[in-house]
Design a protein around this nucleic acid. Structure first.
Length: 567
RNA sequence: CGGGAUGUGGCGCAGCUUGGUAGCGCACCUGCUUUGGGAGCAGGGGGUCGCCGGUUCAAAUCCGGCCAUCCCGACCA
């Protein structure tokens, strides 16, 4: 490619709206342009990078036996109604209606369609299968942000494994796990795998690949000493040792006029009611059912854990009016002691505790001497609280760390949720029909591209890893009006093309500073500079983008030197 | 959905308080000079001032409504 003929609209100044480094640099470098909130055009440079990422993904997916498909993005609503996701997903799903008034959705992911196709797999002998595609996905995100980090329309590699049984699923899951490690390694991302919540996807297990970055939106818990690592939504820490007073607790109601908060109660009754000896009672509606949710006074509920523990599709805090009508008191005096008729779910760390304090469901009164096992009819125990930095690791007791990461991939063990409803069954050797056991696996291509930029840039611009750079080498001719220099540049350009080097020839009639600044902004890994001075000595300069170190190389040796660097 | 901010040539911004000829830098076009780190001089082209309505002799500017975009939060596979 000749730069003089390329459409590479670089900007000298940062776009006003861009905050995240990847958003700023990809826009300035002429890789992407925003069309509307959450929708971006890929300009030629952006398209090249995304295509390279796609190529690496295809290579690794094919290597584990994946077969590439391409499904419609526009899917009959019927399939989504059958899977239940028509109702489950809500506003995040783009829905439309055709001229015959039939419902359609824009694909969010493609479990339904692939499971539908899987009905044509006739026998267990045809399994396992790994099916994948690289295709546009649509999600009506409430708040797109960070350039292409979080968008409403994006490209995803989504794959689906089909197996006879869970042992087969485990194997397919492990294959993907390995392929994902190789993919992220190849595109230059230090992605680490963490235990994650499956969310509305359902299924038994999921692992998320995250890249550490302040621009990320996932909170990740890791232990510096052992290999424990999990998304905050899944993370647990070792319970802190708390000794309740010995002896049987005597349940007793006592007046607490005007006290509405854990902190106020602790202040007024420092001996009876320090926060870790209180029970915080929260009231939620889980799919319409009023539920009491209990955590320790100094702990915070993590709503996703409540969703995961109960399988609820819809969850919201109860209103003050709903609470008063159910329990007879206002928030501030709520408790679960002797409450019946509502489901009660409690955090594991309340298990076995006694001599605790909680609201009495009567304004301005609390109970003390609460014994959880004796006084509260807990229907379900689960980890519900938010883990905090510095708490002891569940495995080794070291102080855990919490940091922000970008989710670049997520792999799920789905089970039979979709195959059952779509009727994707195979017969076993006894002639019995079984639903196919499925997994699903996703990588967001533009997000991966942005994550690479977040992790690889400096004040001058992007530093692409050679594997996904839009061009591997930029050949910068300093004096295009000087016939000797230009023809030397042309010869070298032809020579590099012959060697299969992906090179762009900067033949623009621009001043050197402009050319250098652009090359550094768009992040081409290697720059060869040809100018009249060096040419007289038969040399060119070779500059490495990362670190901007420069070496002088004989013209004749450049091809082999670059081949060496790029191998 | 709640809070905050911003909408003026392709990009970055001033002008709005106090209503009266739409302006600056970059980019772009032409010419000359210049050429190893974002050149200089001269000339030139390009804007429904987000949209709708109102006030006024007169609105980028004042008032009302709406829309869009960004940031924080809620939410989020």
């Amino acid at each position: 490619m000749r730069w003089s003929q390329a459409f590479i609209p670089t900007l000298r100044e940062d776009p006003a709206e861009a905050e995240a480094a990847s958003h700023r640099l990809l826009t300035r470098g002429g890789f992407i342009r925003q069309l509307s909130a959450g929708h971006y055009s890929m300009l030629p440079l952006g398209q090249r990078v995304r295509a390279r990422i796609g190529r690496i993904i295809r290579r690794e997916m094919d290597a584990i036996g994946g077969q590439q498909f391409h499904l419609p993005a526009l899917i009959p609503g019927e399939l989504w109604k059958r899977s239940g996701r028509w109702d489950l997903v809500g506003e995040e799903l783009f829905r439309l209606v055709d001229r015959k008034a039939a419902d359609f959705v824009l694909g969010f992911t493609h479990e339904e369609v692939f499971a539908h196709l899987a009905t044509e797999v006739p026998s267990y002998r045809d399994l396992p299968q790994i099916w994948y595609q690289i295709q546009t996905k649509f999600r009506d995100e409430p708040r797109p942000k960070g350039g292409v980090l979080r968008v409403r329309e994006f490209t995803m590699k989504d794959s689906y494994s089909l197996d006879v049984d869970t042992a087969g699923l485990d194997a397919a899951f492990d294959l993907h796990h390995g392929a994902y490690r190789r993919i992220f390694g190849a595109i230059g991302l230090e992605a680490i795998d963490v235990e994650a919540s499956s969310g509305a996807m359902g299924g038994t297990k999921s692992v998320e690949f995250v890249v550490r970055s302040p621009a990320g939106e996932d909170w990740i818990v890791t232990c510096p000493k052992c290999d424990y690592r999990a998304n905050l939504e899944r993370a647990v820490s070792a319970p802190s040792p708390i000794r309740d007073p010995a002896g049987e607790a005597k349940l007793e109601r006592f007046p607490t006029p005007g006290i509405k908060t854990i902190a106020a109660l602790a202040e007024s009754f420092p001996n009876d009611a320090p926060p870790e000896r209180q029970i915080k009672t929260l009231v939620y509606l889980l799919d319409g059912a009023l539920t009491l949710v209990l955590v320790r006074g100094d702990h915070e509920l993590l709503e996703q854990k409540l969703v995961d523990a109960t399988g609820a599709a819809n969850l919201r805090p109860a209103t003050a009016a709903e609470i008063r009508s159910a329990l007879g008191a206002d928030p501030g005096s709520l408790g679960a002691v002797n409450v019946t008729g509502y489901q009660i779910i409690a955090d594991n760390e309340l298990s076995g505790r006694s001599h605790l304090v909680t609201g009495a469901n009567q304004d301005d009164f609390h109970y003390r001497g609460v014994d959880v096992g004796r006084d509260i009819a807990v229907g379900k125990w689960a980890s519900l609280r938010t883990t905090k930095a510095g708490e002891p690791c569940i495995r080794c007791g070291s102080s855990i760390e919490i940091w922000k990461g970008i989710e670049v991939g997520h792999i799920f063990k789905l089970g039979t949720k979709y195959s059952k409803v779509m009727g994707a069954l195979v017969q076993d050797d006894d002639g019995q029909s079984h639903p196919i056991v499925m997994g699903s696996y996703g990588i967001g291509l533009e997000r991966a591209m942005a994550a690479v930029v977040e992790a690889n840039h400096d004040e001058r611009g992007i530093i692409w890893p050679p594997s996904i750079a839009p061009y591997q080498v930029v050949l910068t001719v300093l004096r295009v009006d000087d016939p000797d220099t230009m023809s030397a540049g042309e010869r070298l350009y032809a020579n590099l093309l012959d060697r299969g080097v992906d090179v762009i020839l900067d033949d623009r009639d621009e001043r050197p500073g402009v050319k250098f600044a652009d090359a550094e902004l768009i992040g081409i890994p290697y720059r060869v500079t040809i100018g009249p001075k060096g040419l007289r000595a038969g040399k060119a300069e070779l500059t490495t983008r990362r670190g901007l170190s420069t070496e002088e190389v004989e013209l004749g040796a450049l091809g082999s030197r670059l081949a060496e660097l790029l191998s």
